[in-house]
Amino acid sequence: MYLPDFEYYAPATLSEACDLLEKLGPEAKVFAGGTDVLSKMKQELLFPKAIVSLKNLGGLSEIRLGNNNDVIIGAKATHNNLIDSPVLQEKYPSLCNAARQMANNQVRNIGTVGGNIVNAVPSADLPPLLIALGAKIKLVGATGERVLPLEDFFTGPNKSVIEQDEILTEFIIEEQPFTGSTYIKFALRRSGALAVASVAAAVAMEGNVCRKARIVLGAVAPTPLRAKKAEEMLTGKEITDELLEEAGSAASKESKPISDIRGSEEYRRDLVRVLTGRALRKAINEGHV
């Protein structure tokens, strides 16, 4: 395998990077860890004429507490940075566990959170839980910046609302009402396998009553998908096994899986049902795991 030729830029500042992206146009590709970009280029699935590396941009890999107990995750943080982050281990260990399920240790040392999002792969491991936790993202462009819910970011496989000149710089997880959250991935091998189906759940419990629930499905639609009907079924209700099963069935109906080499549509739909119940139970009973 080989990498086709490309121009390489490593701007020193964010604004320089955005200007460069604007100038270079759609054939330029932002490059953070590069694990996804390089493997796609080697497989001739991606042919960028230019690569704009973020390696010289400082401060984008920090994971810290911001105002109002917001958790701020720099987009250049690697998956292993997430796993090792004391802030996350304290606030959202579920995110550490979700990060741990991506690829393998070597890739987690290089692959960034930002990359995992911007690639917009439907089976990516971080988006479902980040959406469930209501994460917002900051996009910085040549002419300004914007903050939007991650939920509104994806538009299709490998497609999102990001503009040519924009760079994803950070995630903001505001203080949540949720008492528990989790991500369950179903894959065909215990490591190094893409999700066949995945479910993230976040719940705000008061005793046995669910005040709020978010359920986000992965790998079963063109984008990560909120199972809103299932969420509504739970809101304000006392949790019973039956209710969880109904929520699972509702989520299953809301999913829009395709058949591919990893699993049939029918199988995925049923996995959503099972995993939704399991994720909810886990988030309800075990907190942020």
């Binding site: 065909l188 091998r189 215990r190 490591s191 396998a193």
Partner: peptide, 28 residues
């Protein structure tokens, strides 16, 4: 359980890599 060489509709190998041709890992 895991390994199978698959082909697309044109007869090209659909999983000619070690991510989708799944040999077990140490965890399996």
């Amino acid at each position: 359980i895991w390994e199978e060489v698959l082909f697309d509709e044109n007869g090209d190998v659909a999983n000619g890599n070690l991510a989708e041709y799944r040999m077990p890992t140490a965890l399996d």
